[in-house]
Amino acid sequence: MMLEAVAFYAFACLAIVSSGFLLVEGRTPLSASIALAIFGFSVAGLIQSLGADLLAILQWLLSLASVAVLFVASLTVSGLAEEEFNLPPASRVMVKLLGVVAAVCLAGILAWIVGGSFGELAGEAELPGSQAVAISLYSGWASPLHLLGLLLLVVLVGSVVLAKQRLD
């Protein structure tokens, strides 16, 4: 239990720092991709620390795939992206000031949530294991699951059609 809480807070800090880096300092596509990778993996660790093993594995796979695809896309548009990722110098100072104010507000909210009476637990929550999720998916959720497969097929074909060299 203690290890679970420590892992949760460590991954929470990592997720907040990486998303803040992505927001404030992620100027080049490479640094943004790395920050997004750290963000996705830390959220996967968060889900794992909460005991949802199946969702954690799916989040790991999704993070890996999204970062790989984003990195390849950033290589495709390299040169263009590095120029336009930057903000104009005048607005950069204003954005950093706003970022400091927002970070103080977020830290206050986090301290209120962690330290206040708001964090009282109502009871021990029993989360289902992978077997219960699988039974649920293949009984009540069978039709949405098939529709998801169809959606992924459509996305696969649509992505190939959109990304190929000639559109006509």
Binding site: A52, L54, L55, L58, Q59, L62, A65, S66, V69, L70, A73, T76, V77, P128, A132, V133, I135, S136, L137, G140, W141, P144, L145, L148, L151, L152, V155, L156, G158, S159, V160, L162, A163
Partner: peptide, 26 residues
């Protein structure tokens, strides 16, 4: 258990959105 199926749908839709969005971006 049903909520996990809903979370699975969110994850798959996110993956589909990212793939299609990047293709449109390219």
């Amino acid at each position: 258990s049903e909520a996990y199926g809903f979370a699975l749908i969110i994850l798959v839709v996110a993956a589909a959105e990212l793939a299609l969005g990047l293709s449109i971006g390219v």
